[in-house]
Amino acid sequence: MSLLSELNALALGLFIISTIAMTVTRQIGACIQIFVVQSLLLAASAFLLGASTPSWHLIALGCVTVIGKAISIPWLLRALVPSEIHRTRELSQTIDAPTALLAALGLTLLGYAFGAHIVGAAPNLSSGNVSMGIAALLVGLLLLAVRIEAVPQLLGILAMENGAFLAGIAIAPDFPLIAELAIAFDVLLLGFIVALLTRAAYRRIGTTEVGGLSALRERIK
């Protein structure tokens, strides 16, 4: 095992830990910071794979990730979302932290097993990326289900996307760059729109606990 792949394995381990940490961190500001760490670890994995392949596509993707997710998303959230929300501690999650942690660990194992099963066909691959990518996708889904505040829900979607790309850099290293750039643009637009929506919700209905909104549904007569 070369040094680069060992470093990549370290980045993958830290990546999944940061994803799980986002699920149980109550303070929203801290949650954003952990998301930055997660994005930087995705970029690190892209750089390491890019250096060992070598592939300019992956280096470029790493740069796009740093600019788009580690710098721009937190900046957008700070600029557009009222500062009170950043200091909020989210107390009313749908399930408590220990249960969420246990569920996250279970999902990680599931993702790991499934990733290993899928990679069986193509042994030359960084199989850890696929396993941890799928695991992060599942834990991100859990984050989305557990949290009811707007900002953590957005971070759940972005964490899932990071997971998809963590697998993506291993399985499709020469994916057309134009698509990668456009994806980065999509992420910025997403951050911008969600920040606007969160701000509108805060001003109009006085809460950003969007998971608790349930006025719209069928009422059985």
Partner: peptide, 27 residues
């Protein structure tokens, strides 16, 4: 309105959730 914001949020979460799952499918 409160209802419109709720609808927009649900729309955003579920369709983007779908898009994120689909992007892994595309890869």
């Amino acid at each position: 309105s409160a209802d419109a914001l709720e609808a927009a949020w649900k729309y955003m979460v579920l369709t983007l959730l779908g898009a994120t799952i689909a992007v892994l499918g595309v890869l």
